[in-house]
Structure formats: C-alpha cells, structure tokens
Design a protein around this nucleic acid. Structure first.
Lengths: 198, 198
DNA sequence: ATTGACACCAAACAATCGTTTGTTTAATTT
DNA sequence: AAATTAAACAAACGATTGTTTGGTGTCAAT
C-alpha cells in the first residue's frame, strides 16, 4: 500500500484555503473595509486579480470566511459540550469557555464573526446573518436546559451572555486572566447571586 | 441688560456643530470607513473641501464626535443618577437605563462610541481611548458602591455589564422591549440569582 | 469707506479602491 | 503526443478616496 496517488492530491483547492485563512486574519485584525484585496494578495504571495479566480467578489470572500468560522466554532463547541445529560450549568460553563477561548484564539475565524457586522458587506449580508443565527441557535440549545427562576427570559439571557462574552475581545490584554477564568466568572455571575448582604 | 452682543454670537462656529452632528449620524449608521467626507458634506449642504475649514482631518472629525458623545452621555447619566445616597442597586438600574436609552436613541453620538472602535482611525486612537475611559470610570464609580458577595471582581462585572448592554444595539428591533425594560432585566439578572430550583 | 478675518466655493490633486481583461504556465486528461 | 483545464500573472480599468490650493463673497470692526 505505497500508493500515494489515490488520495486525489489534485492541485486544486489548496490555495483557496490559504487565501481564506489570510482574509480571515486580516478581517479580524483590521476590519472588512480596512482590508484591501491587495493586502490579502500580498500575504498570499499572489496578485490581486488572482483572488477572483477563487472568489467572485470581496463580499463573497467575507461570506466564505464567515461560514467557515461558524463551522469551526461549532466544532469547538461540540467538542467541549459534555452533552445534555450533564449538569446544565456545568455544561454552559464548558461551552462558554470554549467560546471565549475561540474568540481570543490566534485562529482568526471566530474573531471575524464578532468584529465584522453583516451590514459591512450588503451584498453578502443575508449569508452572514444566516451563519450567525446557526451559531446562536446552538447556544440557545444549551440555555434552554438551564433551571431558571420564574420570569427569566432565556432569549435575553442568551443575548446578554453573548454580548458580555464577545466584548472580551475588546478589553482583554495579554497576561491577564485566562479565557477559561473569564468564562467561568461570567457564568458564575449569572448562576449565583452577585449581591452581598446589603 | 438688553446687551445681546456679549455672548459672542459671531457667525463663527455654527455650521461646525451641524457638520459634527451629521458626521455622528453617518458614523453611527455606516461606520467610519464606510462614510466618506463627501457623504457628510452633501448632507450638510456644502462642499467636501469646506469641512477642512472646521476639522483638520477625517480622524480629527471622528475624535470630535467621540468626545462630544462622551460629554452628552455623561450628562444623561448624571441626570439619571439618584446619587451616592440612594440604594446602590437602584442607582445602577437608573444609570444603566439611561445608558441603554442613549445607545438606542436617534441621537447618534452615543452610538458612534460603541460602533466605531479606536483602531479605525489610528491617527486619533489615543483621543478616542481617553474619551472612552472617561466614561467607563463614571460607571465604575457606581459599581464601586454595590454590596457584592465576596470574591466578585468589580472590574469584570463592569466589563460584562457594558458588553451586554452595548450588544443591545446589534440585536434590538423596533417594537420589542423598551430600553428601560432591557436595562432593568439586565441589572436584575446580576442582582438576583438567575438559577431556579435545580 | 476700508480692512481683515471668517466661512465657504470651485476645482483639482495624487493615491488607492474593487474589479476586469487577455495571456501564460503547468498539471491533468484523452 | 495532443487537447484541455486549473491557477495563476501582467496590466490596466474607471471610480472613489481624503485632501489641498487658490479664490470669493460676507460680515464685524475700524
């Protein structure tokens, strides 16, 4: 079995991944409009026009990054999720830890989804929103299992939770608390009363 | 005292306010890089070059909007704040209500501060960060008075709170919950345990 | 009446943007 | 070996960007 030719190493579709990776990094670092096709091409070692062989437009490139980002983020969530039979709050803690770790990662895909709003590229906004919803539904699934006090709106809880978690990307500095510590503190703040004896 | 000339109604510095208001609206709606000097000039009924009589650059215009935004936001917070002698949680509720109302307002100044990140305009980033810090210090002041359970990090609490509150701008739709309802729900989530009998 | 700052206009500047076009090289298929 | 296709290059396109330059009418003070 020394046959190495059967795994279809067609030269196709390898640089397209490189281009998308680089676009993800630059979109995450600088934003969509602040990143030019020339920036991406330069880092990929190719010419600006060559990108258009792989992606029909800059907006489509962003959509591709977004959708790949959701897939990767969901994969990380799935890997961290202890499953519906685990204790619900511990489950949320595990999932949120994976989330915070992902958006602070050097892998840029998750960061793009938080930094770049759908209206940055009107031509691809629908695809971006759909991808985002697909992810939020996964989080909603975990929140649905939480035993909550009556009157607590689970949708509001989800939006607050994601808002607080995603904001970490803005204020977190190297050398501070670890992503896991941050996530745990956040979940604990919701689970246990923050109020002391007043 | 019918002297109306002492209040220096020199015709100067009236359109500069209009230009800044319009810039605030467009920056809030579309973002910094997505807004052109021509967009602003058109809405102000003047020519692009004329803006440079009032502001030396686009980045400086953004800084002006930012700083005016902080001033207005602080004014609203001050007006809503019942003061340090009020019950601390009620105080936070009042202040956060004012905050959420401001960032959903048609007045665009507060919205710019949340939508446009300092690194959008490197030339003015220092001024933007300074303005933002000035505001966050005001919130920290209110949080400092809260009676909290031991082990709760007040800085983390502040960052989570602002992250969750600012995220409202992304998901809130017309006709949904009122800003006040949202703010109250958010504070209550921190003050009271969300957890039910599990 | 003259002056001088003020607040703009008119027109252009160089640079950069996303994108298109025609061509070329190298790998694969026939 | 010939034909085909994938994946790029090379070079430009028109449009738009932030900004500059020089002129102009208007108003307040002299």
């Amino acid at each position: 079995m020394t046959n190495t030719a059967t795994q279809t190493p067609t030269r196709a579709n390898n640089r397209i991944g490189v281009v998308r990776d680089i676009a993800a990094e630059l979109f995450a670092e600088k934003g969509f409009h602040e990143t030019t096709m020339r920036d991406i091409a330069r880092r990929a070692g190719m010419l600006p026009g060559s990108i258009y062989y792989h992606f029909p437009s800059k907006a489509d490139l962003l959509a591709g990054v977004y959708e790949e980002g959701v897939s990767r983020l969901l994969a990380r969530i799935d890997a961290a999720d202890p499953g519906p039979r685990a204790e619900p709050w511990a489950r949320l803690e595990a999932v949120m830890t994976a989330h915070v770790e992902a958006i602070l990662d050097r892998s840029a895909y998750a960061r793009v989804m938080i930094r770049v709003l759908p209206d940055a590229a009107p031509g691809a906004a629908a695809r971006l929103i759909e991808a985002r919803d697909r992810y939020e539904a996964r989080i909603a699934e975990v929140i649905a299992r939480l035993p909550l006090a009556p009157g607590i709106d689970r949708r509001l809880l989800r939006l607050f939770l994601l808002g607080a978690a995603n904001h970490v990307q803005v204020w977190r500095r190297e050398g501070g608390r670890s992503p896991a510590e941050i996530a745990v503190a956040l979940v604990r703040l919701l689970r246990d009363p923050a109020r002391g004896h007043g």
